[in-house]
Design a protein around this nucleic acid. Sequence first.
DNA 1: CATCCGTTTTAGATCGTTCTAAATCGCAGG
DNA 2: CCTGCGATTTAGAACGATCTAAAACGGATG
Lengths: 337, 337
Amino acid sequence: MQRKRVTLDEVARMAGVSRATVSLVVRKSPLVADHTREKVEQVMAELDYVRDIGAARLRNNSSRTVGVIVPNLVNSFFTEFLAGVERVMGEDDRVVLLANSQDDPRRQDDILQRFRGHGVDGVILCPAAGTPPDLPARMRRWGLPMVQSLREIDRGATDYAGADYIEGVRLAVQHLVRLGRRRIAFLSVGARTSAREERLAGFARALAETGAEDAGIVEADLTWEGAARSAAEVLALQSRPEAVLCFNDVLAAGLMLGLRRAGLEPGRDLGVVGLDDLPLAELTYPPLTSVAMDPAGIGVAAARLLARRLADPDAPPERAILAPRLVIRDSSGPEAG
Amino acid sequence: MQRKRVTLDEVARMAGVSRATVSLVVRKSPLVADHTREKVEQVMAELDYVRDIGAARLRNNSSRTVGVIVPNLVNSFFTEFLAGVERVMGEDDRVVLLANSQDDPRRQDDILQRFRGHGVDGVILCPAAGTPPDLPARMRRWGLPMVQSLREIDRGATDYAGADYIEGVRLAVQHLVRLGRRRIAFLSVGARTSAREERLAGFARALAETGAEDAGIVEADLTWEGAARSAAEVLALQSRPEAVLCFNDVLAAGLMLGLRRAGLEPGRDLGVVGLDDLPLAELTYPPLTSVAMDPAGIGVAAARLLARRLADPDAPPERAILAPRLVIRDSSGPEAG
DNA sequence: CATCCGTTTTAGATCGTTCTAAATCGCAGG
DNA sequence: CCTGCGATTTAGAACGATCTAAAACGGATG
């Protein structure tokens, strides 16, 4: 049943030229004469020739394939990120190998080995929590170009695309302070990633700058159920917070759910602000004030960085940091007055 | 900078055996003597040998790679589906090539050509709206094994994994009728897919079975904004509905938003039921009554079907239809009484 | 000691492409 | 009619694996 592949040789025979010439046509080389090119292209169309990229890569070492590793696919932040990556890669006639590390460094290693075996040209990596810091060095030793995105394990030595979370957190805190909510808690996550550290650092710095009061830091599982359960803990903080800034919108949505279950009205009784501005921010009740990070834009930036790196492996490392934007809705509470 | 690949030959030389023997070790053949195997494995570890799957495929025609095409990545239904596919493929030591057709048949064709070029072993396809019905036949001619999932363009001739949407719609309608809401509208989408037809057919059938009244069918863009805008249209239906059944949860969430903007309280003034039971169903306000379709389970089923098909290309086509489950929350309204 | 047989190992061809270096073509100039 | 030169084309060797068929090995047997 397996249909045999149409090869360069067959096309060549049919078109009355050599295999090498057909190869040149496939690669759009300017060396072939126009009439030969036309003839060959016609035959290729007739026979439904499809170039075998694997065989090509074997010889010339470019597979036009890049690997992307994300820590999960359920959070739509990563999905939009992926969509951005995919768009650029598609435009550039590259194919994306997608894998999900589930935030497990061992799985991530597995995936990288498989990617290597498949001869990917490069990798966009959102490192799993707990990734050993020497991974980028190892990958360099493998000769596998890499761009880090969304999370960063060796700042400075490799290309990185992300958002300015410190600034994002600042925007959120400033907004809350402007609304008169000065005792602010932070709902964080357990997984140790640069994203977490950055947001926590931003929180501390923003408190200092605005003179707001740190009402405490609570950790939850990175699921909305986890966040809902943590509502009790938030409410039990010694200095009862006037607002809670959440690691991301998933947590914020879950927290609002938990608050409501506890009989509180998010936005009125307690301000809630998320980060990421996922589509769901608009769908929660009350609609969630959040800080937009443009994940698709980050994906685009990451893809561009990788393209650049592939074109010029020795270019100096570059960082693309996108600016966040505060989106005010109702959950942060009404204007103070 | 490009590090040279470690090849079978190098391992062979280092281990003092032939290339062929090393190849046997790599493929875990029982033919090699234990002491040779150990020696070779040790050398492979030392040299950090990685098998070149492209080169292998060139010879033996199996790339251990499958392509998956989904029409979008923003709807978490597809994401969970993907997660299911990925899980099974990973267990089976296969790699997933992911692509997003954006519901555009031309893009979908492009992607398929690229997949062919990469020598994927098979494809899991969620066909874009407007896919020409002869696509499966073409793919058969290419010798490219395929499993359809979530949407179906040539019922019966190829493997298919999906959910029983007719039954799902029935559950939803029965539930509404039980609550005393008998004038029911359907909020549908524009894109023509089997998923749409099936849900509409299920709606008609369920109305007939329960004796409920068709309050009309409204079409919206498949985004929550689109659904929110369509609220006005729903409210303007000549026979004002007591409940609205929505094509999926994204529409349902958007509709609730629109209703609320119009000053109505979803669940009290108008019952709303979604389909899919996405995670966001629990986060909306009021929490959304929906019909769970287990997308991850469908992904698992699709992957299994493809694995089976690859193992036995001539097996008769099979269909895996998962049963839906009604999840009652608040948006459908209180018990009639 | 020759033979046989099951177990291991191996040489060499092969997959479909690209690369290198050289061959061929067409034509202008001497 | 040869020479030289750009513009095209091509033969044949890679690339790194697997497959086939045959060789080498190591006892056991007669």
